[in-house]
């Protein structure tokens, strides 16, 4: 019963409001008013907005991919530690979450700006100074950094469950390290990898703080656009329509994930 209330208050009602708003006309000072219309939905398909969506997907996708490239070996390295060191390493992985998200993002400004450590350091070896801040790369870096623990943890969990004997068996049958990774490790930890990717991709896609702080004006993402509709343009209906667009995309992705998970459950423990 409490679950039902929870679901109703936190999911069904807000979602219902967003859906309803998307089909109404915007009020003069925010809010919504009649009559009902499809204008907001058709407006979504203007190239301008589709481009922002596409570049957001690319940013979030790249951040997810990089987080995987770093997170998988990190998770693997953690499983090779002794049990007590594994605990220490896992605490270290989630440690950044103990600090406020905004503060951590501001810290990157200090690191990345023209007078920052990165630029100075590169200058020392003759590669700088460079400007990373307020570029698209900075946004991707920021997203990767912010969510990489969410990649490491599920991958770590599925590596833990993997029977190390399987890797030895593959080795005994003549598989070198790369083949063992490709044919055993990767497929058998796929559920964890997919979960980790979703955990990074979903919050990255809707994020508007990082593009704003690290991307400056150049790297708007769909989250910024939605935020602006509500807070600047005061066009709640169109903001709602954009939100639904993102939501639809995520629903499709989660459904794909669910079917992959079903497939791997078929293998059994």
């Amino acid at each position: 019963m409490p679950a039902l209330v929870y679901l109703l208050v936190l999911m069904v009602i807000p979602l219902g409001l967003v859906i309803a708003y998307a089909f109404l006309t915007s009020g003069r000072f925010g809010g919504v008013q009649g009559p009902a219309t499809l204008d907001n939905i058709t407006r979504l398909f203007q190239p301008l907005y589709l481009e922002v969506l596409a570049s957001s997907v690319v940013n979030a996708g790249l951040a997810t991919f990089i987080a995987f490239l770093i997170g998988f070996p990190a998770a693997l390295a953690i499983t090779r530690l002794s049990l007590s060191w594994q605990t220490v390493a896992l605490i270290a992985v989630v440690m950044p979450f103990w600090t406020n998200f905004l503060i951590r993002t501001y810290a990157w400004i200090l690191l990345l700006n023209r007078e920052g450590i990165l630029s100075d350091g590169l200058a020392l070896i003759g590669l700088g100074p460079i400007e990373v801040l307020y570029t698209r790369e900075a946004v991707i870096l920021g997203l990767t950094y912010a969510y990489i623990p969410l990649m490491v943890l599920p991958i770590y969990a599925s590596l833990q469950r993997l029977d190390s004997m399987l890797l030895e068996a593959a080795c005994n049958l003549g598989a070198g390290p790369w083949r063992r990774f490709r044919t055993i490790l990767l497929p058998l930890t796929m559920p964890g990898i997919i979960t980790g990717c979703l955990f990074v991709f979903i919050p990255s896609l809707g994020n508007f703080v990082i593009p704003e702080l690290l991307g400056g004006g150049n790297s708007q993402m769909i989250g910024n656009l939605i935020r602006d509709q509500f807070l600047k343009s005061r066009d709640w209906p169109f903001g709602s329509a954009l939100s639904l667009l993102v939501l639809a995309l995520l629903v499709i992705i989660v459904m794909l994930q669910a079917s992959a998970a079903r497939r791997s459950r078929k293998w059994g423990a």
């Binding site: 004997m165 030895e168 593959a170 049958l173 003549g174 044919t183 055993i184």
Partner: peptide, 19 residues
């Protein structure tokens, strides 16, 4: 290295690839 030894081991727990 183990992957290049002409020796095959059948594991106590079989270690079949579940997928």
């Amino acid at each position: 290295p183990p992957e290049r030894r002409a020796v095959n081991l059948m594991f106590q727990s079989y270690a079949l690839f579940p997928h």
